[in-house]
């Protein structure tokens, strides 16, 4: 009986995602093969847009986005690992409260949070600079409108996306395995390398994947905190679509981002036992 029902229950979700996830990707891919600056889907197929993408310097925004996403992933992982292990092992009855407090900001719009961050970091009359000046008469510079500012924003927004999968990952490391390793002579670093890291790898992989992919497309961080210091790929695509009215070119850039995403997502998802993490 259940073998017959399954597909019917899957059908609505399947159709919805086919229509609004798969189809748009196909349409974008098709557009990317149309002649430059056309709005029809019936033109002759060409790779002109891809050739132009690399000829006209669009590899730079793509590189900035990829580099920013990689750095964000790294910094988030470095910050989230100790946080996750402390929450899992030592926080005791506070663990629930702290976890909820960390989760809460996800549900406050990132425009609000990034706005707050820019208010905090603003030079001169910002919250940080103003407070320091008023209390200690110290004048400080600001990282606002710089690449560093954009990176801080990226880390700030994506930290929870690293932390929560990692919490699940750390929970997959049984305490007795760590004790066994210590008993067999492993120091703190060896325990981390030989036991904790490999056993928490599924959670860490999901966290890294999520962080990287979300940061890859991120635009608001660079716009609000990065000023004009850096152009990310999403901004470049938007510019092609809206101002330059060059849809095929924008589509080609979109396909490139999707290609980078796919190149990262498929190998990781194929290796990670997602079901085992979700079931916990």
């Amino acid at each position: 009986m259940s073998r017959v029902h399954g597909p019917w229950f899957a059908l609505p979700v399947g159709l919805f995602l086919a229509a609004f996830f798969a189809a748009p990707i196909v349409i974008v891919a098709w557009y990317s093969l149309m002649p430059p600056r056309t709005f029809e889907l019936s033109g002759a197929l060409t790779t002109a847009n891809y050739r132009a993408a690399f000829g006209e310097g669009y590899e730079r925004p793509l590189m900035w986005s990829a580099l920013g996403a990689a750095l964000t992933t790294l910094v988030c992982a470095l910050l989230a690992w100790p946080t996750a292990t402390i929450l899992h092992r030592s926080a005791g009855r506070w663990a629930g409260v702290v976890t909820a407090l960390i989760a809460l900001p996800i549900f406050i719009s990132e425009s609000v949070r990034l706005f707050g961050m820019s208010l905090f970091l603003m030079p001169g009359g910002g919250i940080l600079a103003g407070t320091l000046n008023a209390l200690f008469e110290v004048r400080v510079g600001s990282i606002l409108n710089s690449r560093l500012g954009a990176l801080v924003g990226l880390v700030y927004i994506h930290f929870p996306f690293m932390l929560f999968p990692l919490l699940l990952g750390v929970a997959m490391v049984p305490a007795d395995r760590i004790e066994a390793a210590r008993d067999l002579g492993a120091g703190r670093l060896a325990v981390f390398r030989e036991v904790e890291l490999p056993l928490a790898a599924p959670g860490l992989s999901i966290g890294c994947l999520l962080t990287f992919v979300l940061a890859l497309g991120a635009n608001a961080e660079a716009a609000i905190l990065g000023g004009r210091a850096v152009t990310v790929i999403t901004a470049a695509i938007e510019q092609r679509f809206n101002y330059a009215q060059d849809w095929p070119m924008g589509a080609a850039l979109t396909v490139l981002v999707i290609a980078v995403t796919a190149a990262v997502v498929f190998p990781v998802l194929a290796r990670v036992p997602l079901d085992r993490i979700i079931r916990r």
């Binding site: 007795d176 004790e179 066994a180 390793a181 210590r182 008993d183 002579g185 056993l199």
Partner: peptide, 19 residues
């Protein structure tokens, strides 16, 4: 500490490294 004692333990759960 445990890692510097020349003794070894067999755990109740065995605690084998499954990976």
């Amino acid at each position: 500490p445990a890692n510097r004692r020349p003794t070894a333990m067999v755990f109740q759960s065995l605690a084998l490294f499954d990976h």
